[in-house]
Design a protein around this nucleic acid. Structure first.
Lengths: 124, 124
DNA sequence: GGTGTATACAACCAATAGGTTATGCAACCG
DNA sequence: CGGTTGCATAACCTATTGGTTGTATACACC
């Protein structure tokens, strides 16, 4: 098991968010919703798959908190929610920052030893 | 190689990148690699799963282009690659921008309709 | 009240993901 | 040379995903 035997809920949300974004149909749904809320049938129209399939994709997006469900008569118009993106972006950005830092360390190291001799890190 | 018979490779790469990021073990591997290259056994050590499982996760990360494989004697040290992140970040950012734009349109609309005494909240 | 429309949901299916153990193989060590 | 280490891969299992079709429910419109 990982250091902790239970997963943090932040990790769960990240899982759900990234997983939701990992499908081109779902990204297309989000893109469509970015220009305004839309009913399920409207959302399904451009795709060569059943309404049921689109409903499933929408459920994935909802579970990730990326879209929410409204109601208007028998329609359940979806609209976009932005918050989960923050966490995802934040993860990527902080990852990038740590890459940045280790490049800086590497830079300094190469600067320090003018002769790049192969070091032998003993296994731990 | 028929130009019209396959999905955009950008979409494929996005799929692979987001899917790779959607697993906490893989995010942890990346985080570890951010502080410098590491062998498979080093990478596997903190986890309560087999080396084979870690190798599989690493393969996913490689397929997404997020890590690459070096060689040093019988070791195959992995190091991080940053490029695929650009595309992912770019997708999110451009999505965010289009949310922003449609919010502005909504704002303008509400303004036009003279919503009584409502001051524009300028979200985000 | 009957009909059409919007959506959800269940049952089903094939493919993929994520894990396991076992095995193979190359490179190093003594 | 033989043993050990580092890693990949195969075979296998189960759960999840992404799709299908076929109802069921809820509302709207005469």
């Amino acid at each position: 098991m990982q250091p902790n035997s239970y997963k943090s809920q932040a990790a769960d949300r990240l899982d759900a968010t990234f997983a939701a974004l990992a499908d081109p149909t779902r990204r297309a749904l989000l893109a469509r919703l970015a220009s305004g809320e839309a009913s399920v049938t409207e959302l399904a129209a451009p795709f060569a798959m059943s309404q049921a399939a689109i409903s499933k994709h929408l459920k994935v997006l909802e579970r990730a908190g990326l879209v929410s469900r409204g109601r208007d008569a028998q329609r359940r118009p979806r609209r976009v929610e932005a918050k989960p993106l923050d966490e995802a972006t934040e993860w990527i950005e902080s990852y990038r920052r740590s890459l940045e830092r280790s490049f800086m360390r590497l830079d300094a190291l190469l600067d320090d030893l003018q002769t790049p001799k192969k070091r032998r890190p003993t296994k731990r």
